[in-house]
């Protein structure tokens, strides 16, 4: 045993045996004592609530209906057969897909402009990462200030640029409110893609490009043959992390549209929030959140497993 080896070495070195019996016990179980606080906290506030919610989703737990009787799959049925629930899941997939795609392309382009050093690069870098440190609530608020009629200056600017009167209801009219939500998400999270992809780009050995240039390879070919394959693991990592956060989308919707008009901007998280906390059908909401959890787990196993196998660094 490693511990006794240490003690015998200590004795051989003439060190006095100064450990109390508690200290000896603590030293022997050292590695488990270190993980204990974190593991206990996660068990208490993540695993226990999850199990508890599993129980709740099979009983009646509703502030409008008294009693906590077993109701079988009824809560799950209510969610599955709710057209708003299906709409919200669809919208979640669609909004996060489009946002992440735009963030990825834009982040990659900006990263490519920032690879080489130039005067002012440090300052620009510091500015570009700012959105990452802002609460999504504030991001939603900032875009509300810019877009909302009649206060926001966006319509005025567009009117001047296009030379004709623009009166878009950015937060109320059907296609435009999705555009607004996507813009806010793109504004906040493009720097995420940019930062990770830039780290990947700077890790590519420059002599590859020098060799390619000697061979007379043009810029476009070098991008396809060198940049893309070297960057692929990092791209997968950035996309995975971003997608898993994007499907939780809630804060900007809460501030910008409040889910409306009607239920048009309900995402999965927003739908479950309203079912649980404005309608108080808590057991229906927990059942729904378990379904969403399973949906997320599927995405995780599909993406993260692949990611771990690729072993990017």
């Amino acid at each position: 045993m490693q511990y006794t080896a240490t003690v015998s070495r200590m004795k051989a070195a003439g060190a006095p045996p100064r450990l109390s019996s508690f200290a000896q016990w603590a030293d022997r179980h050292f590695k488990w004592l270190l993980v204990a606080p974190a593991v206990l906290l996660i068990l208490a506030l993540s695993i226990y609530p999850l199990l508890f919610s599993l129980v709740v989703s099979f009983i009646n737990y509703d502030f409008q209906v008294p009693g906590h009787g077993f109701v079988g799959l009824k809560n799950f049925e209510r969610v599955v057969f709710d057209p708003v629930a299906r709409w919200s899941l669809l919208l979640t997939a669609w909004l996060s897909g489009v946002s992440v795609a735009i963030e990825f392309v834009l982040g990659l382009l900006v990263a490519l402009t920032m690879v080489r050093s130039f005067p002012g690069r440090g300052v620009i870098m510091s500015i570009l990462i700012v959105p990452l440190f802002i609460s999504p609530v504030i991001v939603g608020q900032a875009w509300t200030l810019l877009l909302q009629r009649p206060f926001g200056p966006t319509n005025y600017i567009l009117t001047q640029l296009l030379g004709q009167e623009v009166t878009i209801g950015w937060m109320t009219e059907a296609p435009w409110l999705y555009v607004s939500l996507i813009i806010a998400d793109v504004w906040q999270w493009t720097p995420f893609m940019f930062v990770i992809l830039l780290a990947g780009l700077t890790a590519i050995p420059p002599n590859l490009y020098e060799a390619a240039e000697l061979d007379g390879v043009n810029a476009w070919q070098a991008f396809w043959a060198i940049t893309l394959p070297h960057l692929a693991p990092m791209m997968l990592l950035a996309l995975t992390f971003r997608l898993l956060d994007a499907i939780r989308m809630f804060d900007t919707i809460f501030i910008m549209t409040g889910g409306g008009p009607g239920t048009r901007t309900y995402t999965a998280s927003y739908y479950l929030y309203t079912v649980g906390f404005t309608q108080f059908h808590l057991s229906q909401a927990t059942a729904g959140s378990w379904l969403f959890l399973i949906f997320t787990a599927l995405v995780v196993t599909l993406l993260v497993r692949r990611l771990l196998k690729a072993e990017p660094v």
Binding site: A38, L45, L282, T286
Partner: peptide, 20 residues
Amino acid sequence: WVLSQRFLPPIGIVLPVFLI
């Protein structure tokens, strides 16, 4: 297991935590 906690959707945790 710790990493997987990062990817749990908060709505799944916060409902039961609210009740508890």
